[in-house]
Amino acid sequence: MQQQTFTIKNSTGVHARPAGAILKKASQFACKVEIEKADGTRVSAKGMVGLLKLGLKQNDQVTVITDGDGEVEALQAVGEVLETVFE
């Protein structure tokens, strides 16, 4: 299992388009990819509803947890999308 904390950089937070980008990236990996917010809410990064439910805003800190095949690569790849500025 791998985990690392990232900061949301996008000014409008994680709305539909960023959530779509995160789930597409996460879905490229076979391993489990989960995102946990500071309050302990944890969702799969491979589902749109879960990602939107987190309601992530700019500067929120989230922990990405990966477990399984390709967990190291998945952690970095998903982290990169989380720190991407979309607008």
């Binding site: 709305h15 539909a16 509803v49 939107l52």
Partner: peptide, 24 residues
């Protein structure tokens, strides 16, 4: 309603079958 985005410009409705529809 699986999710109403907090800026109210999009929502997701989930159907019993598991299908989820995003309207943006």
């Amino acid at each position: 309603v699986a999710h109403l985005i907090d800026t109210h410009h999009a929502c997701i409705v989930g159907h019993d079958s598991g299908v989820e529809v995003l309207m943006h």
